[in-house]
C-alpha cells in the first residue's frame, strides 16, 4: 500500500471534496496535470487498497442532529479483541473502532468505539446493549463524552 506523487496530488486536490460540476474528475485532472481517466484509475486503485474508504456524500452528522458523540472504551481480553472489535466495528452507530495499547495502571482500556446518536440517553442505551453482548468479556468500560471541540480539521497531507 504505497502512493506516489500523483496520488498525493490527487488526495490534496480532493480532500476538501470534489468540485460540484458535471465532470468533477476532469476538473481535478486539470488541477493536477493529468487526464480524467488517470484520476479515476488512481482513485479506483486507492479505493481497492483501502486508502480511500468510500467516495460519496459526506453528511455533517452534527448539523443533522447527531450531537452526542461518545468515545466508548473497553477493557477486553487481548485474545478476544479482534473478534470483539470486528463485531463492534460493524455496528451501524459506530463510526470508528480501534484496538489501541493499554497504559497501565491509569489506562486499562484496549478497544475504542465511537458511538453517535442524537442524545446522550441513546448513546448510553447503545453502550448498555454493547456491554450486554460482551458478557464476561467486558472487564470494564466507560463512555467519554466530548464537552468541547477544540480543533477539528480534515485530513491534510504534505508539509
Amino acid at each position: 500500500m504505497s502512493i506516489d506523487a500523483l496520488d498525493r496530488a490527487i488526495i490534496k486536490a480532493t480532500q476538501e471534496g470534489l468540485p460540484l460540476v458535471a465532470r468533477p474528475y476532469d476538473a481535478v485532472a486539470e488541477q493536477v496535470g493529468t487526464s480524467a481517466a488517470e484520476v479515476m484509475a488512481r482513485m479506483r486503485s486507492m479505493l481497492e487498497d483501502g486508502i480511500i474508504r468510500r467516495i460519496g456524500c459526506v453528511p455533517n452528522h452534527y448539523a443533522l442532529g447527531y450531537k452526542a458523540n461518545g468515545m466508548t472504551v473497553w477493557d477486553v481480553p487481548d485474545s478476544r479483541v479482534d473478534a470483539i472489535g470486528g463485531k463492534m466495528g460493524a455496528l451501524d452507530f459506530v463510526s470508528h473502532c480501534y484496538h489501541r495499547p493499554r497504559h497501565l495502571p491509569e489506562w486499562p482500556y484496549n478497544l475504542f468505539a465511537m458511538v453517535h446518536a442524537r442524545n446522550h440517553e441513546t448513546v448510553d442505551a447503545r453502550v448498555e446493549e454493547m456491554a450486554a453482548s460482551l458478557g464476561e468479556d467486558d472487564h470494564g468500560h466507560r463512555v467519554l463524552y466530548s464537552t468541547r471541540i477544540l480543533k477539528k480539521t480534515g485530513l491534510r497531507i504534505g508539509g
Binding site: 502512493i3 471534496g17 470534489l18 480511500i52 474508504r53 468510500r54 460519496g56 459526506v58 485530513l155
Partner: peptide
C-alpha cells in the same frame, strides 16, 4: 441540491473519505 446542502452545512463535502492514518 448538493451545492445548497454543502453551502448550508448539512453536507460536509462530496468526495473521498480517506482511511485515517492511510497516508503517513
Amino acid at each position: 441540491t448538493l451545492e445548497r446542502l454543502t453551502a448550508d452545512g448539512t453536507v460536509s463535502r462530496v468526495g473521498a473519505v480517506f482511511k485515517p492514518g492511510g497516508v503517513g
